[in-house]
């Protein structure tokens, strides 16, 4: 297992380095437009391909709200930022196998919409 995992980890770390250098928060901000459905879809998609410490997603999310992005989209973004990971997908495939990985990512994708929607709805109703 170690023999297989060590190069995988190095590969994922290498991809994270590329992402952090070439994808800027400004590029991410440009994709949101303030509409609930559009921003939720973009939020889940952008969160899935983004990498970094969770606090990075909070900072970008806070900036997105200031710039007029929908709260639903921001919630979807910070959730998929930690639950989905396109960069680590090859490693997940390699270790867990295709069926497990596809199932996990599919369910995380679907649940990102539900959790984000219910969270913001609850805040609006009770917060």
């Amino acid at each position: 297992m170690l023999k297989m995992v060590t190069p995988m980890l190095l590969a994922v770390v290498g991809l994270v380095g590329i992402f952090k250098t070439y994808v800027t928060p400004e590029m991410i901000k440009a994709l949101f437009n303030g509409s609930m459905l559009h921003d939720m879809i973009v939020g889940v998609g952008v969160g899935a391909v983004s990498v970094g410490q969770p606090f990075v997603s909070y900072i970008i999310g806070g900036e997105l709200l200031k710039e007029g992005a929908s709260f639903y989209g921001v919630a979807a973004f910070i959730l998929s930022f930690v639950t989905l990971g396109v960069v680590q997908l090859p490693m997940e495939f390699g270790i867990f196998g295709a069926r497990f990985t596809l199932w996990r990512n599919f369910l995380s994708f679907v649940f990102s919409f539900f959790v984000a929607y219910l969270t913001v709805l609850s805040v609006e109703m009770f917060g």
Partner: peptide
């Protein structure tokens, strides 16, 4: 298990 997967990725 495929021990070469990690090497291909790297």
């Amino acid at each position: 298990k495929n021990n070469k997967t990690g090497l291909y990725m790297l």
